[in-house]
């Protein structure tokens, strides 16, 4: 075990996999000599050279489009989109090409590619360095969407994603890149995609969160414990495929569900989780499913602390639910 930040764990995972499998290549803007603007790819260029770690021209559609070509050819590309706010030029390549390739060719052609991209606010990045666009991608059959929230999961899920035979969008919560430290196993291990993690057990209510909202949910749960309410916290980890079983089991036990996410509330992925709970566990519920989310506005700069769900808003939602 070693103590690492989430960012160091990602860097460690990339280095390990590139050393283990020479088909793995990294490409993107500033990922080479500069080591990425967040330093996620630091040292890889020096270790693996310019054919394995490629600084590309500044075009997201080109980064993903050429990575798809590499994957079709037999490589295992790990392209980086510098901020997920800049991923939209590549939306077509991801949705129309990468995600549909296996289906449309009956498995003849596949795209085993892992797109790494930082998501979320909390760094005073305004509209274009703060968004959480996971729901757009979760709506695309053929694409997996993964969001870690701890250093151990970051490494284990990244290794599982790179080895996955299908395209994975690996979204890294940048707000907790450096301020989350934890024990990370050294060497090779994976955390399976499609499995949620029970962060904290409880009996009165279930908080479902992912990414940078997991520590917020934990903090709220701690506060609720002080209020005499026992809250279970789940880290979804894998948006697609979603581990419905763990969520439903928890909600059936507690009878209350609050989903916490950073993205705009309407049509965010929390809406899907709410629907799953309503469809499959409504008879167990003691009150309405609640969502604590970002507002349906573009992501703000100065007032981002207002926009982002915090432990106070989550605690209030649980309080309201307990009093329902």
């Amino acid at each position: 075990m070693a103590t690492m930040t989430l960012l160091q764990a990602i860097n460690d995972g990339l280095r390990l996999e590139m050393g283990r499998d020479d088909r793995v290549v990294v490409l993107g803007e500033d990922v080479g000599l500069n080591g990425g603007v967040f330093r996620a790819t630091q040292g890889l260029f020096e270790e693996f050279g310019g054919d394995r770690v490629m600084d590309t021209p500044l075009a997201e559609s080109g980064i993903i489009g050429t990575a798809i070509g590499m994957a079709l050819y037999g490589l295992v590309p790990v392209p980086e989109i510098q901020f997920s706010d800049f991923i939209y030029p590549a939306f077509d390549q991801i949705v129309s090409e990468a995600a549909k390739m296996r289906y449309r060719s009956g498995g003849e052609f596949t795209v085993p590619m892992t797109i790494r991209t930082p998501i979320g606010g909390g760094i005073r990045g305004g509209h274009y360095h703060s968004q959480s666009p996971e729901a757009y991608f979760a709506h695309t059959p053929g694409l997996k969407v993964v969001v870690p929230s701890t250093p151990e999961d970051a490494k284990g899920l990244l290794l599982a994603s790179i080895r996955d035979p299908d395209p994975v969008l690996f979204m890294e919560p940048k707000a907790i890149y450096r301020n989350t430290k934890g024990e990370v196993p050294e060497g090779d291990f994976t955390v399976p995609l499609g499995k949620a993690r029970i962060v904290r057990e409880g009996t009165d209510a279930t908080l479902v969160a992912w990414g940078a909202m997991v520590p917020v949910a934990e903090k709220a749960a701690e506060a609720c414990a002080g209020d005499g309410v026992s809250v279970e916290v789940l880290d979804v980890r894998s948006i697609i495929p979603l581990d419905e079983e763990t969520i439903l089991e928890s909600v059936k036990k507690t009878g209350r569900a609050v989903v916490v996410y950073e993205a705009p509330k309407s049509c965010g992925f929390g809406a899907e989780i709410s629907a799953v709970i309503a469809e499959k566990a409504i008879e167990y519920l003691e009150g309405p499913i609640a969502r604590v989310a970002g507002f349906d506005t573009p992501f703000p700069y100065t007032l981002e602390h207002m926009y982002l769900p915090d432990d106070g808003r989550v605690r209030q939602a649980i309080k309201d639910l307990m009093e329902f």
Binding site: G65, T66, I68, G69, P77, D92, E108, F109
Partner: peptide, 30 residues
């Protein structure tokens, strides 16, 4: 789509295959 003939699956979206060709060729280079 015809893998045996190294003929990549076709899309209806115009132009998306152009970066694929460039990336595939980069793979050959690597």
């Amino acid at each position: 789509s015809w893998r045996a003939g190294k003929f990549v699956s076709m899309s209806s979206v115009i132009g998306t295959q152009i970066p694929h060709a460039a990336g595939m060729a980069r793979g050959m280079q690597i």
